[in-house]
Simulated assay, not measured.
Amino acid sequence: MVASDLDRTLIYSQAALDLTMPDEKAPRLLCVEIYEGKPLSFMTETAAALLPELAARTVFVPTTTRTRKQYERIQLPGPRPEFAICANGGHLLVDGVTDHDWHRQVTRRLGDECASLAEVRSHLLSVTDPSWLRKERIAEDLFAYLVVERDLLPEGWVKELSEWSEGRGWTVSLQGRKIYAVPKPLTKSAAMREVARRTGAQLTLAAGDSLLDADLLLAADHGWQPGHGELADSGWRADRVTLLAERGVAAGEEILRRFLERGSKVAV
């Protein structure tokens, strides 16, 4: 079973492509997401060819912090995955439909183990400044995130928010221009384990680039993290997790190669 984060792991916005080579040597790209009539997310054509091969050999599970609506905009090459994990584990999709029993289990746990979304949202709004805040959103009634002008963020603001959230059972993650506040019990790893249980998977592989992917990487039998992103920049390392040299869209291609290589060895 392969559980992989999407944004800045397998798919990339224009700003995240990191095409540092000469233009004539840049890889051909395939657009996999349109938003408001404009191309938004890409992968290399080579990666687009590798993904259907991976899906044919493994249980491939897209695993994202995106809401269900945001996930549904993505058109990955190959057949639609039977399982997908959205909202950082808050929703488990089976053939595109929410598993309501799973969602109820998650929401019960959040109610028992951490501060309420209302409390956290109220604090977020009280400590933000209109000069650098662009959007404030609630995702699936599970967590909150801000879209900010990152260059204008006060020094130490994210650290202070993290410390405040820690004591209330929440995690803060800075990813590009987005700052996520997510309940600690809301994890991708729990949903990954549930899919592994249902499918009988004996080996779990994972990939991700952000703090919200750390639990997923630690729960898998082996994981990969690209050379960019929150985890790489912070110096995060773990046993059974390989830090790749590749950055940007090239890392997405390499991650798919590693998934296929490891999966093929098991099959043999």
Rank of each mutant, 00 (worst) to 15 (best):
M1F: 08
M1P: 05
V2H: 05
A3N: 07
D7W: 04
D7N: 06
I11Y: 04
L17F: 05
D18K: 14
L19E: 04
L19Y: 06
T20N: 14
M21R: 14
A26T: 13
R28F: 07
L29Y: 09
C31L: 08
E33G: 00
Y35W: 14
L40F: 09
S41R: 14
T46S: 08
L51M: 09
L51R: 02
L54N: 05
A56K: 13
R57T: 11
R57N: 07
T58W: 11
V59H: 13
V61W: 04
V61A: 06
P62V: 12
T67S: 15
Q70S: 13
Q75A: 14
E82F: 09
A84V: 07
L92E: 06
V97L: 09
H100P: 00
W102Y: 11
H103P: 00
T107N: 02
A115K: 04
L117H: 01
L117R: 05
V120I: 15
V120W: 03
R121P: 00
D129W: 00
P130Y: 06
P130L: 06
L133T: 04
R137K: 15
L142Q: 04
F143M: 08
F143S: 04
Y145N: 09
Y145M: 09
L146N: 01
L146A: 01
L152V: 00
L153M: 12
P154T: 07
P154G: 01
K159Q: 15
E160Q: 13
E166I: 04
W170R: 02
T171E: 14
V172F: 05
V172T: 11
S173K: 05
Q175M: 08
G176S: 08
K178Y: 08
K178V: 02
Y180Q: 02
P185I: 08
P185L: 06
L186F: 07
M192H: 04
E194S: 04
E194Q: 12
A201N: 02
Q202K: 15
Q202E: 15
T204F: 02
L205C: 06
A206T: 07
A206Q: 01
A207N: 08
D213F: 12
D215F: 11
L217A: 08
G229K: 06
E230G: 01
L231F: 04
L231G: 01
S234Q: 13
W236H: 11
W236T: 01
W236N: 00
R240F: 12
E246L: 07
E246Q: 15
E246K: 09
R247H: 10
R247N: 00
V249Q: 03
A250Q: 09
A251E: 02
G252V: 05
E253H: 08
I255H: 03
I255V: 12
L256C: 02
L260R: 10
